[in-house]
């Protein structure tokens, strides 16, 4: 059972109020009519399916009805961060920066 923090309502609500809407940060090809079959197929059907950290879109369907992003571990189901549309994950950015500084990975990201 998830207890999800909606970044727009700024509070935690139960999973029932939300719907998962698939992978986040997908970019539609800029010129669809010029995209090859391969590019278009990749965009339509091929999704990341990581065993570990995953960025997803969810919608607060029964609440404010806004879409937002979640950074979640698909094995432990820990939600590391929720953040509004149009933004990037600060937790992921901090992990990358930490790895570049040579720090050990934090436990939650161990499977990533």
């Amino acid at each position: 059972m998830f207890y999800i923090h909606c970044p727009y309502c700024n509070e935690r609500r139960s999973e029932e109020e939300f719907h998962a809407k698939g992978q986040a940060h997908l970019m539609r090809p800029a010129n669809p009519e010029e995209a090859s079959d391969r590019e278009w197929g990749d965009y339509l059907f091929f999704r990341d399916n990581p065993r570990g950290l995953h960025q997803e879109m969810w919608v607060h369907a029964a609440g404010c009805r806004k879409f937002f992003n979640i950074l979640r571990n698909t094995v432990s189901y820990e939600i590391l961060e929720t953040y509004p549309m149009g933004e990037q994950s600060s937790v992921l950015a901090e992990m990358t920066a930490g790895r570049e500084r040579g720090e050990p990975r934090r436990a939650a990201g161990a499977v990533a």
Binding site: C9, R13, E17, A62, G63, C64, R65
Partner: peptide
């Protein structure tokens, strides 16, 4: 005031 799930509806 909140918008939420109520009795299997909203």
């Amino acid at each position: 005031g909140v918008s939420t799930v109520f009795a299997k509806t909203g």
